[in-house]
Design a binder for these strands. Structure first.
Lengths: 218, 218
DNA sequence: ATTTATTTGGCACAATTGTGCTAATATTTA
DNA sequence: TAAATATTAGCACAATTGTGCCAAATAAAT
């Protein structure tokens, strides 16, 4: 237990090094310094540097999954869907760290066979989360019935990741309001009669959506 | 002149190293080996490694700009717009190299003050290209008149970059037909009466679009 | 209390890194 | 042809890299 906690602390130190100095500066010595440990103590927990990176990536996925479970849903599906999607966009420091670190890891994964499976896992998870949300909203007749779910999922997922990338590369150009406006504008045509939403029913749907998502992550 | 050609050959060798082995393996020695030169000969052209990366990035931008000028437009604006956007998506080996290298560079640029300006330049250029295309299509009454051009540009650009990223990270999941379908589905709602297009007029528009874009790049 | 196991800490080594320095060769210029 | 310049080539050095090895300290267990 404590052992696992220490590994997580080291992984989080690795995140911060990547966030502050970039992946090429993410050396065992810099991570140890950031974690406040001697190098060899760190190597007790991770004998390979490769293991450390893999663990740090998994831990990052866990943190995102954990935040997904505590989204303060409003009960209005349209807004809740946006809330869900915005978890993957750097709208605060936590998410900014996640996206930046993920951006670095994904580039590394292209040539690191140990990271490649995690890369695919991340894609599949997010894909299923978004697809599940759209499917649920379709099942309760909130989305237009003739939507191509797979197509809309790929399109929406690409949009979200694109916005995330653009936001970390040019943070000044993407204030939260702008991101929200783009998402709103993208999602609106997917919905049926947004005005006639019954809030009580919507809460039920929101809960179902959350339950569905949890089932996907565990 | 020959001097410049040699610098370009070295820069292209750097691309290939990044493409084949990743950014962390893009060392002066590996680049020199790939270029078939001794290390010190390479250092005659680039005294700093930093200069090499900056030049390699600029050269990459140049190559993309050059390809944009030779797009085999069909004369049908809807298809030509797709053709334009698809230049930024890894649908062949050339574009795959470009996106992969750019992906690595952009991650590095977050912590490399020398690369940061190029990063912004790349974003601005693509943004203006896409915005210019949408604006032109609006001016000739092919797009719906009430579109928010800035919003649609950011949305479309994010979609394109998201598709590009997803395509390089999971190439098997994004065959060209799928990318095309997503783009088609995204662009269709932006257009007015796609059926009633007069091909002669369209060719003129296509030429104008090309001229406009050239003006932006030079 | 003594023996285990767990964790922390220090040091060293081989490999690789970017880069500086100088000589040799080829090319151009006068 | 002679001189100057441009280019190629080789070597070395200090710094940094991941990692192996072993001792000290702490905690747990018998």
């Amino acid at each position: 237990m404590d052992h696992e906690k220490q590994k997580q602390k080291i992984a989080e130190a690795a995140w911060r090094v990547i966030r502050n100095e970039g992946l090429e500066q993410c050396t065992v010595r810099n991570i140890a310094k950031e974690a406040g440990l001697p190098v060899s103590s760190m190597r007790y927990y991770f004998s390979n540097q490769s293991q450390l990176f893999v663990f740090a990536t998994k831990h990052l996925i866990d943190r995102i999954a954990q935040r997904l479970e505590t989204i303060p849903y409003t009960g209005v599906p349209f807004n809740d869907l946006k809330l869900l999607l915005e978890q993957f966009i750097p709208l605060d420091e936590d998410r900014q760290l996640e996206v930046e670190v993920w951006h670095s890891f994904s580039a590394k994964a292209l040539h690191d066979p140990e990271l490649q499976p995690l890369n695919e896992e991340m894609y599949e998870d997010l894909h299923q989360i978004i697809r599940g949300a759209l499917r649920l909203l379709t099942q309760v007749n909130l989305l237009k019935p003739d939507l191509d779910l797979d197509l809309e999922t790929e399109r929406l997922y690409a949009l979200v990741d694109g916005l995330a990338i653009h936001s970390i590369l040019l943070p000044d150009k993407f204030p939260p309001a702008k991101v929200d406006a783009i998402l709103t504008h993208h999602l609106e045509p997917l919905f049926l009669h947004r005005d006639s939403q019954d809030n009580f029913v919507m809460e039920e749907i929101s809960k179902a959506l959350k339950a569905y998502r949890l089932g996907l992550l565990n």
